[in-house]
């Protein structure tokens, strides 16, 4: 017999709720297990490892701050940090600026069919290995490469482009630009066209409407695109190594160098934790900015 509530005449039905919960949990469980095993676990281990000691090329469990004080007192660490941060910031600024006109045209100036094809073509670079794409720049950027040959016909050059910061940034663009264009195009396509026309109607010139209306409306998407660019550039090892010449090293290269020289895994862990903290801070700041709505009384 089920009991009935005398007032509402509804059948008391308590167990259903609990059943539903375990059902929902069974769907969530795989991702929770995966993230715990392969993300949270290694992350905790990495933080712990940054306090370990290395003696006779062997790592020993310990809780000493010596790795941190060693790394933080070295100029090369801070040089590397500011270089990486500056290059990633530059990369984000350049990619966002280079991508915007293309995204704007794709979102506002072409037919939906052209837009679909363009987005498809922008995804194609991701089919090939990033390493292959970076090596193909050798042919173009080398001292005797295609770009210098072209400049030579105008009586310019030759310029050294490989093993420079310029080379690193070209590599970063190879990695990030297609993605930034795709994300920006999505952000701009979702804008309500009536709002842009309303701005024109109120005396806003088409050029002015880009920063008066379009950029505020697409703010979230534009910031997320820039954030992805920063994260990818900041953590990239391939471009600064093969196109930037690895001197001075960026943080990812510093990690490799540190592990190679004397098995200093704990010091590499310090660099990794610093990178992690930087990216988390940047990501939170960017998302807070992206989703900030004005205070309302």
């Amino acid at each position: 017999m089920t009991s009935r509530d005398p007032l509402t005449h509804q059948v008391a039905n308590k167990p259903t709720r609990k059943l539903f919960d375990s059902f929902a949990l069974s769907w969530r469980l795989p991702i929770i297990v995966w993230q715990t095993l392969f993300f949270l676990g290694p992350l905790i281990f990495m933080v712990a490892m940054s306090f370990f000691l290395v003696k006779n090329y062997r790592m020993q469990e310990a809780f000493e701050f010596v790795n941190w004080s060693k790394m933080f007192s070295r100029n090369y660490f801070w040089d590397s940090y500011f270089l990486t941060f500056t290059l990633a910031t530059l990369s984000t600024a350049i990619a966002s600026l280079l991508a915007f006109p293309a995204s704007f045209a794709l979102a506002f100036k072409v037919s939906p069919a052209v837009r679909r094809w363009a987005l498809f073509l922008l995804i194609i670079p991701f089919f090939t290995s990033y390493l292959v794409r970076i090596f193909s720049w050798y042919v173009i950027l080398a001292e005797s490469g295609a770009l210098n040959a072209l400049l030579d016909t105008f009586g310019l050059g030759p310029y050294t482009m490989l093993n420079t910061k310029f080379g690193t940034l070209v590599g970063y663009m190879t990695l990030t630009l297609p993605l930034v264009v795709v994300l920006q195009t999505f952000a701009l396509s979702n804008i309500d066209r009536n709002l842009v026309q309303a701005a024109h109607n109120l005396g806003c010139s088409p050029f002015r409407s880009i920063y008066a209306v379009i950029m505020p409306l697409a703010k979230t998407g534009l910031i997320v695109a820039a954030l992805f660019c920063f994260i990818l550039s900041f953590g990239d090892f391939v471009s600064p190594y093969y196109l930037g010449g690895s001197k001075p090293p960026t943080l990812p290269i510093l990690i490799i160098d540190t592990t190679k020289s004397g098995q200093q895994w704990p010091r590499a862990a310090v660099v990794a934790v610093v990178m992690m903290v930087t990216l988390i801070t940047i990501a939170f700041a960017a998302l807070a900015l992206a989703y900030r709505t004005r205070a309302s009384r």
Binding site: D192, N194, L195, Q197, A198, A199, V213, P216, L217, R294
Partner: peptide, 10 residues
């Protein structure tokens, strides 16, 4: 004056 009003949400 637009049917959707088209007020700027930002």
């Amino acid at each position: 004056v637009w049917q959707s009003l088209a007020l700027f949400p930002f």
